[in-house]
Every structure is written in C-alpha cells, then in structure tokens.
C-alpha cells in the first residue's frame, strides 16, 4: 500500500453541524488515509497551526451555514504561513453563485450535496498526491 495521505477535516466559524465532517473523516479513514479530525468552531489561525504541525496534504473544510464565506481568509493565512502547497477543499452547502468566490481564492474543489463517497475519496487522493509532489519539488533535508 502506498503512503497514506494526511488530511485535516475541520470546520471554521460558528456552524456546529458536524455530521458531514465526521462522515467524510470516516470515508477517508476507510480509504486508508490518516485524518486529523477537529471539532467545529475552529479559528482560522488554529487551522493553519494544525496544518503546519500535522504536515497535512489536504484540508477539508465543512460548511453548512455560510462559513464558506471566510474560507478566502483561510487561504490567505495558509499562504502567509508557507503552506501554499496544501490543497483545500470545501464540502457542504455552498450556493452556486458563491463557488467562484472560493475557487478564485484557491480552493481546489467544492463538494456539494449529492457528492458520492467515490467522488470525495478520488478527489482527495488526486489532490493529495499532487500536494505531496509539490512539497517534494521544493527540496528537502540535505545530508
């Protein structure tokens, strides 16, 4: 089996509906990946610290009550912390006309209602592998 991806599944802002994020965490676990799971109500700075310390490849942000509107702030904070190799996806309820707001800010994919387990797992795996490649290409430890 190849190296598992490390994925942070989290929620930012005030929305506490965490059934979806737990389900997605379980999907990714069952696909053989390592999921760092947080409860809802995370601050953006906390998500950045988590992503940095846990060296994750992908961040999945669940949003069901307009918290996707602060995801662009998260993208900026990740970039400032040197984490622009990390892929970010958003899942949950995002109105169609607000999807460009996220993709323009650098969000790789938005998974809306009706997304299947396969869609999510395949999407995360493809993005995660490319994030790993990007990180490797930036050089590592020298003997």
């Amino acid at each position: 089996m190849s190296t598992p991806l490390r994925v942070l599944v989290t929620k930012i802002g005030f929305d506490g509906h965490d059934r979806g994020s737990r389900l997605v965490a379980a999907f990714l676990r069952d696909a053989g990946h390592e999921v760092v799971y947080t409860p809802p109500w995370q601050e953006i700075s906390a998500v950045v610290t988590l992503a940095l310390q846990e060296d994750v490849d992908v961040i999945g942000v669940s949003s069901l009550a307009t918290d996707h509107l602060i995801v662009p702030d998260l993208m900026e904070a990740l970039c400032d912390a040197g984490l622009d190799h990390v892929e970010v996806i958003v899942g949950g309820i995002v109105p169609d006309n607000e999807i460009p707001l996220l993709t323009d800010a650098g969000v790789a994919r938005v998974f809306g209602p009706g997304s299947s387990r396969e869609d999510i797992v395949d999407g995360v795996e493809e993005l995660g592998r490319s994030a790993q490649q990007r990180k490797l290409s930036r050089g590592g430890f020298e003997a």
Partner: peptide, 18 residues
Amino acid sequence: VTGGAVLGDRTRMGNHTS
C-alpha cells in the same frame, strides 16, 4: 483492515493550538 486512521487526541488539547 484499511490502514486508515482518525487522529482525534489533539481534540482535547485544543486550547494549546495557539
């Protein structure tokens, strides 16, 4: 079975994240 994991220990250490 799958090699996957949900890592939730730090959930209880949240106040040290910052």
